[in-house]
Amino acid sequence: MKNYFPTFVFCFLVWILVAGAGYPELILGVAVSLALAFFIARICGIRMSWKTPLSALLFIALYVPVFLLELVKANIDVLFRVLNPKLPINPGFVRIETGISDNFSKLILANSITLTPGTISVDADDDGGIYVHWINVTGDDAGSRSEKISGRFSRILKKVML
């Protein structure tokens, strides 16, 4: 029960952002947000609490700049790989160790891996490992590869997710 109300408030804010704040929209918005809050909290098992906005602020301050920088680097990397007539790739599937068990953090981390240089996440196992398709495999063992792909992200995520 404790989860429902913050989730409801969040859904309602998004609704106002999309539909505007007219009178009929607000009534419909309350109904839709109630249904969605029930669905999200009960069936999907995503937990939101009053600490979530604080988490989100920390997330935006610490994580998003690093992520945007990596995204731009990734695109320049793709640009040069694609435009190079020799197509310098050395692809492979590797497993990396993240040390993160929380499902939501894992989703954020997997998405970030997909959008950072040369990697796309394929699958995740239950022990905190993520399987990654890497376009240019370097490094010899799992440790150095994990550090190279997700080291910065997982350190910040552990700090941010309360």
Partner: peptide, 13 residues
Amino acid sequence: YTRAQAGTKATTL
């Protein structure tokens, strides 16, 4: 697999 790499990153940015 490599196609997905190029496609996803470039279109997102």
